[in-house]
Simulated assay, not measured.
Amino acid sequence: MRVAELTVAALLMALSGYFMFHATALPIGWQEGAGPGGGAFPFWLSLIMLLAAGGIFLRHFAEALADRGSRRPFITRAALRDVLIVVLSLLAAIALIHVVGAYVAIPLFLLFYLRVMGNCGWRLTATLTLVTPVVVFLFFEVALKILLPKGITEPLFIPLYALLF
């Protein structure tokens, strides 16, 4: 399994380099009066992905030095079950975005993930579930002027848009 892990890390690093190279076709710095350049988010997110994949290599070599010859499984059944639950819940959230919009799908996913998967208390779950869509709205729609899908909830945003714009 280590070969597969390192192969995926190498592919992610190559893909990150490719994305970074093409992102530099657009400005990646701050544009006065306009905000971040068109290539900023792709470039910096690709750099983070490159560093994370590089961390996989570093971890592999550190573990190889400390753990020669061990045949531990790559993932346990319990961990695989948790990963599958998260993947399926993310797919459900993505499917819901087109129906009920991002501002309903995101809190529903957070509610499930924090309460069911994370066993977090109701206070933390409610706080993050209610605050996150507000912050996402202010960041994307107000600050960056990027409209997110709203699905059937779009009429609820018309008075808010009239107030803010």
Rank of each mutant, 00 (worst) to 15 (best):
F109V: 07
F109L: 12
F109S: 03
F109P: 02
L110E: 07
L110H: 06
L111N: 00
L111K: 01
F112L: 03
F112E: 05
F112P: 02
F112D: 07
Y113D: 09
Y113W: 13
L114P: 02
L114H: 03
L114A: 03
R115F: 15
R115M: 06
R115L: 12
R115P: 00
V116L: 04
V116P: 01
V116Y: 11
V116M: 02
V116N: 02
M117P: 00
M117Q: 14
M117S: 09
M117I: 12
M117L: 12
G118E: 11
G118H: 09
N119M: 05
N119F: 08
C120H: 11
C120N: 07
C120E: 13
G121Q: 08
G121I: 07
G121S: 02
G121T: 07
W122F: 11
W122Q: 03
W122I: 12
W122N: 03
W122G: 02
R123F: 13
R123D: 09
R123C: 04
R123E: 12
L124Q: 10
L124E: 12
L124N: 02
L124D: 07
T125C: 06
T125K: 01
T125Q: 03
A126N: 05
A126I: 14
A126C: 11
A126R: 01
A126Y: 08
A126M: 12
A126P: 02
A126H: 03
T127E: 05
L128H: 07
L128W: 15
T129N: 01
T129S: 07
T129M: 11
L130F: 13
L130E: 08
V131F: 12
V131A: 14
V131R: 01
T132H: 04
T132C: 07
T132K: 02
P133C: 08
P133F: 14
P133Y: 12
V134I: 15
V134T: 10
V134P: 00
V134W: 11
V134Y: 07
V135A: 13
V135D: 09
V136H: 05
V136R: 01
V136S: 01
V136W: 08
F137P: 01
F137G: 01
L138Y: 09
L138M: 09
L138G: 10
F139Q: 00
F139E: 00
F140H: 04
E141H: 07
E141S: 03
E141G: 02
V142N: 06
V142I: 13
A143S: 09
A143Y: 15
A143D: 05
A143C: 08
A143T: 12
L144W: 13
L144T: 10
K145L: 11
K145V: 13
K145M: 10
K145N: 15
K145T: 14
K145Y: 13
K145G: 14
I146K: 08
I146Q: 09
L147F: 14
L147D: 14
L147M: 12
L147W: 10
L147Y: 14
L148E: 10
P149Q: 03
P149V: 06
K150W: 15
K150V: 10
K150G: 10
K150N: 13
G151D: 07
G151F: 02
G151Q: 00
G151K: 00
I152P: 00
I152F: 09
I152N: 06
T153E: 07
T153M: 10
T153H: 05
T153L: 09
E154G: 06
E154W: 01
P155L: 04
P155V: 08
P155F: 06
P155Q: 05
L156F: 14
L156W: 13
L156E: 08
L156Q: 04
